[in-house]
Amino acid sequence: MKILEVIQPGPLTTIQDLGRYGYQQYGVPPSGALDNFAFRVGNLLVGNDESAASLEITLFGCRLRTLKATAVAVTGADLGATLNGNPLPTWQAIAVHSGDVISFPRLNSGCRAYLAFTGGLDVPLVMGSAATCVRAGIGGLEGRPLRRGDILHAAAAAPMGRKLGVPREYLPVYGSQLELRVRLGPQDDYFTKEGINTFLHSDYAVSAQSDRMGYRLDGPPIRHKGKADIISDGIPSGAVQVPGDGLPIVLLADRQTTGGYTKIATVISADIAKIAQAMPGNRVRFRQVSEDEAGAALREYERAIGDIRHLLQDTDH
């Protein structure tokens, strides 16, 4: 059923889910929501499966009209969301009516908001996923960002039962100083000791050349022992690639699946959402962690989502 009309798409609004898996062997990027935490919680708030297709709204300027009474939730970046001109509370389920206008007019903190709908958005799956990869031209709506006049469909719509929200203690803070925890490797042995020190103890600034493919950082160059090229191999999510100029690039969901530059480290999965919400000019520091610390961080991340899921289920009954 028709659920939404795009009045203004803003700079980049795409349909995402948790990504397309099993096709990196064919060069297809996984894509999917860059901020996995905000995306999953958005779906939980409106009673969906965590992976249901939702909107990822980047920066400000997006305006949407609802075409059906249903429940929605805005999570992720604070883009000053409004419902018919009034502040729209985020990180909670909200009832909307046909003809309501949802706007994202400002950049308050973070840069990617998620809009989840009861039932999830209904688009044809490409290789098992609804995720849009604009670079490959696949997924979502014809493999492209949303345009003015697009009509989106939902698998179902349901007027809201009870108001559901996420307790404040679980909400992420999108600050301008980020600490990203990393595991060194796979090619840390291509760097001098001094190079590794530079990487782990310098402030880097998010550059304007940052997108769903990766975040380029400015700062002190990281010294290689010799060459910066390797025989091409796979690129995991969060890989910190360092080409010949010594400036790190953190690769994200729309990254190329393989590449020929050295990768000094990989950002742990629990911290990917932090860099995904970073804005040009934000400061980044990398901190090395052990395998056990990375494991504990992931368990904590998943426990928070599990807690939220249980809280919402309990409130529901």
Binding site: G185, P236, T266, V267, I268, S269
Partner: peptide, 18 residues
Amino acid sequence: LLTGGDKSIFVEFGDGID
């Protein structure tokens, strides 16, 4: 066996294209 963060491992067999 090379570390690819907390969710991936590289298994590398040699240095060369053959």
